[in-house]
């Protein structure tokens, strides 16, 4: 991470625990850049995270109030804190397994209530921390630790889910689209109400290696090839959109 962002990091913590090629340290940098560009005061911020790799982005690295909660319950912990102290700028950072699988009910209810929270969902399409098991965002047919013959189930489109539930702002970007992602996170932070950013992030160690994308560079290239901005996607046929990830404000 560049020196100018160091002031946002908790002193004395040292290196991150992320695997080689993980996109979540990139995401950590992008979140801090968005905060930096908006000149937000970290003393006014509360970061709430759950269980999993992405939950370690703010806790302990961010030099602010952090609440590292139970698996799946980030949004309700954040809801209680926000309602008691509305002056807090509350950002939830967690993974797809945490927010959409075990915490799926709280996710849709949070969006429905439109409580003023910024939710960053790092989607690496599997359970990284526990060894690469299938989850609700794993693509159909993908190989995982628990789907050796390919995932038989369709994944959630998290953005459509949260949008349908009533969120005020919904966007999806991959960590391979850093500038767009920063813009999206800034917009989410400036939104009053429930703002949701799905951050697609590579997990070469657990997901990639089982799907012929074990080298970090291969997984990044694959993501770059798959991501299509919404405006462009609207002009493409369903055939052309097969296996693509539509990004942008949704």
């Amino acid at each position: 991470m560049v020196r100018e962002l160091e002031k946002y990091l908790r002193p004395g913590i040292g290196i991150t625990t992320y695997c080689p090629g993980c996109g979540e340290a990139i995401l950590m940098g992008l979140i801090l850049r968005a905060i930096d560009e908006l000149q937000l005061n970290m003393d006014d911020m509360l970061f709430v995270s759950g269980i999993g790799c992405a939950a370690w982005i703010p806790s302990p690295y961010f030099n602010a109030d952090t609440l590292h909660t139970l698996h799946g319950r980030t949004i309700v912990f954040a809801t209680g804190a926000k309602l008691v102290n509305p002056k807090l700028k509350v950002m939830v950072i967690s993974g797809d397994g945490d927010l959409a699988d075990i915490g799926g009910n709280h996710l849709i209810h949070g969006a429905r209530r439109n409580i003023d929270l910024t939710v960053i969902c790092a989607n690496n399409m599997n359970y990284g921390m526990t060894g690469g098991q299938v989850c609700s965002t794993t693509p159909l047919g993908a190989l995982t630790m628990t789907t050796h013959q390919g995932n038989p189930f369709c994944p959630f489109d998290l953005c459509q889910l949260v949008k349908a539930a009533g969120a005020a702002y919904v966007a999806r970007y991959a960590v391979t689209q850093p500038f767009a992602m920063i813009r999206g996170i800034k917009k989410a932070l400036q939104t009053e109400g429930f703002a949701f950013v799905e951050a697609v992030t590579p997990c070469p160690v657990q997901f990639g290696r089982r799907n012929e994308l074990g080298r970090p560079a291969d997984m990044l290239k694959d993501l770059m090839a798959k991501c299509v901005m919404r405006e462009k996607a609207e002009k493409l046929s369903p055939e052309e959109l097969k296996d693509k990830i539509i990004t942008g404000e949704l």
């Binding site: 709430v48 609440l67 909660t69 319950r73 309700v76 912990f77 209680g80 309602l83 008691v84 102290n85």
Partner: peptide
């Protein structure tokens, strides 16, 4: 603040968040 939550898990967890908010 009174909140009717979506279940009891949400209830206790939001209470813990509220407690840490003071």
């Amino acid at each position: 603040v009174f909140m009717q939550m979506e279940d009891e898990i949400a209830s206790i967890c939001s209470c813990i968040g509220a407690s840490w908010a003071g």
